[in-house]
Design a protein around this nucleic acid. Structure first.
Lengths: 235, 235
DNA sequence: AAGAACAAAATGGTTTAACCATTAGGATTA
DNA sequence: TAATCCTAATGGTTAAACCATTTTGTTCTT
C-alpha cells in the first residue's frame, strides 16, 4: 500500500533539486552551475556529499564537468547517449543477445523506412546518395571497416529522416550495438558488401519515387537475410 | 584522429574494474561486495573517491546499496530500469513528446502482438484472461485508475510473451511513460473504458485461435484511435 | 610590437580522520 | 517463550587540507 518513506540520503535531495531545475528549463543547456565550494554552501552540505550528487547527475547525462579554472558543472542538452549506454550494458551482460536485437530489427526497420520515405526531403535524398557513393568507394578499395561505418551512418541517417526521436534512438542504438559486435559474428567480404550496396541502391530508388511500401519490403528482406546468416539458418 | 588521453579520474578506474567484473560474471548477481572501508584499501584510494565510484555503479543499475550491518553494495541482476529512467528523462525534458511515442506505438505494437501470438503458451492466455477479468471488474465498479493499471499490465504482459527482452523493454517503457501522463491528455470515462475492454476481448480471441494477423490488425487500429484522440484529430 | 615563457588564481580531484544513522543479530529480561 | 534492549558493523555525512589542471594575465625576450 505505502512505499517506505524516503531514506535520508542528502545527495539524493540535491540530485532531485538540480534535476528538477534542469527539466523545467530553469537551468538551460550551456548554463554553468556555481563552483562546488559555492554549491555546498547553497545546499548546506559537505563537498563530498555534493560531489556524489554531481556524479549521479553526470551519469544521467544531465551535466558535464570540466576541469580547471572556468571549469565546473555545465548543463547538457539531453540526448540518447545514456539510453544507449544502458542498452549496451544489457547486451554485454548477455541479457539481450544480438539475435534478440536482430529479430526486433526485422519487425521495426520496415516501418521506420516507410516513415522516412514519407517525410524525406530532397536534401535527405542527396545526403543518402552521398553516403551511398562513399560506401561504393569503400567497396572499390575493399576497405570493409570503413564500409561498415558508412553503412551504419546510412541506417542512422534514415532514422533521422523520420523526424521522430524515438525512431532515431532505436535506429542509432541498434546499429551502434550491432556493429560493435559485427565482426565477431559476420565478417564482411566482397560478396556480402556488394549485396549490401545493391540493396541500398534499390532502397534509395524506391524512396525517390516515394514508394514507401517498396522501400519497406526491400529493407525488411535485407534485414531478414542478415538475421538468417547470423543465426546460421543459411550459413 | 586521436582521442584525448584518459583523464586522471581515479573513481572512473574503480567503476571500470567493478563493472568489468560484473559483466564478465566474475561477480554474480546477489554477491555482496566488501565493505567500503575494505574496498578502499583494495583499490588504494580514499573512501570519498570509492563512494563516487559506487554512486555511478548504482546509477547504472549494476549494484544496489543497503544500509546497516550486513549491508553494503550488492550486485544486481541487470534490468531495463535504467533504460526506462533515461527515456523518462527525455520525455520530461520535452525532447520526446507523447505524440512521438504514440506514433512509434502504431508502427511497433502490431508486430509485437503478432510475435506474442505465435509464442503464446496456454498459461499466457490464462494470465491475459485473468487480467481481462480484472479490467472488467474495474469497469463495473467504475474505478478508472485501477482500470488503467490493469490495462498497462496487459500490454506489458503481451511484451513478456514475445520472449524477447527488446520488445519487453519497448512495451514496458512506452506504457509506463504513456500512463504516467495519460490523465493530463486523455481522462478515462465509461465510453473509452468500454471500447478498451471490447478491443481486448477481440485480441484475446484472435490470440486463442493463433491468428496473429488478426490480433495485430485489431491492436494497430486500437492504438491508431488512441493516437488520433490524443492528437485531437477526432476529439 | 610580437611572441614566448612564466606566474597566479580558480576550479575540480583526492585524501584523511572523525562522527552520525541504520540495522541485523545476539543478549537480556519479563 | 516472547518482547526488549544492547552491540557492532556498515553506509551516510562532515570538515579541512592538499594536489592537478587549466585559463588568464603578466613579464621577459627578441
Amino acid at each position: 500500500m505505502f512505499k517506505r518513506a524516503k531514506q535520508s540520503r542528502v545527495f539524493q535531495d540535491v540530485v532531485d533539486q538540480i534535476q528538477e531545475a534542469i527539466l523545467t528549463k530553469k537551468l538551460a543547456p550551456g548554463t554553468r552551475l556555481p563552483a562546488e565550494r559555492d554549491l555546498k554552501e547553497m545546499f548546506n552540505t559537505s563537498r563530498g556529499t555534493l560531489r556524489e550528487a554531481l556524479r549521479v547527475l553526470e551519469q544521467k547525462g544531465l551535466i558535464e564537468i570540466k576541469l580547471g579554472v572556468a571549469g565546473g558543472a555545465i548543463v547538457k542538452q539531453i540526448d540518447t547517449d545514456p539510453l544507449m549506454e544502458s542498452l549496451a550494458l544489457l547486451i554485454q551482460s548477455g541479457e539481450v543477445s544480438l539475435e534478440h536485437l536482430s529479430e526486433f530489427r526485422i519487425k521495426i526497420e520496415g516501418s521506420l523506412v516507410e516513415l522516412a520515405t514519407e517525410r524525406a526531403s530532397p536534401k535527405d535524398i542527396e545526403e543518402l546518395e552521398r553516403l551511398q557513393a562513399r560506401a561504393r568507394h569503400c567497396y572499390d578499395i575493399q576497405d570493409w571497416e570503413s564500409f561498415l561505418k558508412t553503412d551504419e551512418a546510412m541506417h542512422t541517417y534514415i532514422g533521422t529522416m523520420t523526424r521522430n526521436p524515438v525512431f532515431q534512438f532505436v535506429q542509432k542504438s541498434i546499429h551502434d550495438n550491432i556493429h560493435r559486435y559485427y565482426q565477431d559474428f559476420l565478417p564482411m567480404n566482397r560478396e556480402r558488401t556488394l549485396e549490401n550496396l545493391q540493396d541500398f541502391d534499390k532502397i534509395i530508388t524506391a524512396m525517390k519515387s516515394k514508394n514507401g511500401a517498396a522501400a519497406s519490403a526491400i529493407i525488411t528482406d535485407h534485414v531478414q537475410r542478415f538475421h538468417d546468416k547470423m543465426t546460421g539458418k543459411r550459413p
